[in-house]
Simulated assay, not measured.
Amino acid sequence: MPLDTDAPPRPTLRRPVLRTLRLGFVPLTDAAPLLVAQELGLFDAVGLRVALTAEPSWAALRDKLAFGALDAAHMLGPMPIALAAGLTGVKAQVTVAAGLGANGNTITISNALVQELGRLARPLGAASFAALVRRRAAQGRRPLTLAVVFPFSSHNYLLRHWLAEGGLDPDRDLRLTVVPPPMVAQRLADGAIDGFCAGEPWGSHAAALGAGRIALSTGDIWPNHPEKVLAFAADYATRDPESATACTAAVIAAARWLDEPANQAEAVNILRRRAFPRLDRAEIAAAFEGMAEGLPLDAPLRFHNATLPRREQAAWFLRQMRRWGHVPAAVSDSAALAPWRQDIWRAAAARLHEAEPPAPSPPPSSPLGDSPEHA
Rank of each mutant, 00 (worst) to 15 (best):
L3C: 07
D6S: 15
P9I: 13
R10W: 14
P11E: 15
L18M: 05
T20S: 11
T20W: 10
R22W: 03
L23Q: 03
L23E: 02
L23K: 02
P27Y: 01
L35N: 02
V36Y: 04
L40A: 14
L40I: 07
L40G: 03
A45C: 07
V46M: 13
V46W: 12
G47I: 06
L52H: 12
A54T: 07
W58Q: 01
A59I: 02
L65A: 05
A72D: 00
L76D: 01
L76Y: 01
P80Y: 00
P80W: 00
L83K: 08
L83F: 08
V90L: 12
Q93F: 04
V94Y: 01
V94A: 02
V94S: 00
V96E: 01
V96P: 00
N105S: 15
I109P: 03
L113S: 05
E116N: 10
R119W: 08
A121F: 05
A126M: 10
R134I: 08
A137T: 08
A138L: 11
R141T: 07
P143K: 09
L144W: 04
A147V: 05
S153N: 01
S154V: 11
S154C: 06
N156S: 10
L158S: 05
G166A: 05
L168G: 04
D171S: 14
R172D: 09
L176M: 11
V178W: 09
V178R: 11
V178H: 11
A192K: 08
I193V: 02
G203I: 04
S204V: 00
I214M: 06
L230W: 01
D235G: 00
A237W: 00
A244G: 03
C247S: 04
V251H: 02
V251A: 03
I252P: 06
R256L: 15
L258R: 03
E260P: 06
E266R: 14
R274Q: 15
R278W: 07
A282L: 10
A285M: 09
F288H: 13
F288N: 09
E293P: 10
D298S: 15
N305D: 15
A306L: 07
E312N: 13
E312V: 13
A315V: 10
A315Q: 15
R319Y: 04
R323S: 14
W324T: 14
G325E: 08
H326T: 06
S334H: 13
L337I: 11
A338D: 15
Q342K: 04
R346M: 08
A348L: 08
A350V: 13
R351A: 07
E356N: 12
P357F: 09
P357M: 08
P360M: 09
P360A: 09
P362C: 09
P363T: 08
P367L: 06
